[in-house]
């Protein structure tokens, strides 16, 4: 039996992870804005946080975009169980 699926399916957990990252980033941003102490350090912290998050997310998406995600993944080739004949029995 030939079981295969497009590589694209593997992006589902990745997108889920990005959503978690986005959710926590929003909470962090909110806390910093709501409870942070007004001053120059505050704006530096916010700038580093926003710039770092943006650069890493865009870099991550750009590095993944160069692959062909329509490539089929053949399950039988991944889950190859050694048969008795393969073991020479």
């Amino acid at each position: 039996m030939d079981l295969s699926f497009p590589l694209l399916y593997l992006l589902i957990p990745y997108v889920g992870f990005l959503l978690v990252i986005a959710m926590y980033s929003v909470f962090t941003f909110y806390h910093l804005v709501r409870f942070g102490v007004k001053g120059p350090a505050f704006f530096i912290v916010m700038g580093v946080f926003l710039a770092g998050s943006l650069i890493l997310t865009m870099g991550s998406v750009a590095s993944l975009a160069q692959f062909d995600w329509t490539t089929p993944v053949n399950l039988s080739s991944i889950l190859q169980v050694p048969s008795a004949s393969n073991l020479g029995l």
């Binding site: 593997l10 993944l64 692959f67 490539t71 993944v73």
Partner: peptide, 9 residues
């Protein structure tokens, strides 16, 4: 084609 994208992800 398969391992590369997974490693990158």
């Amino acid at each position: 084609p398969v391992v590369g994208p997974i490693l990158s992800m």
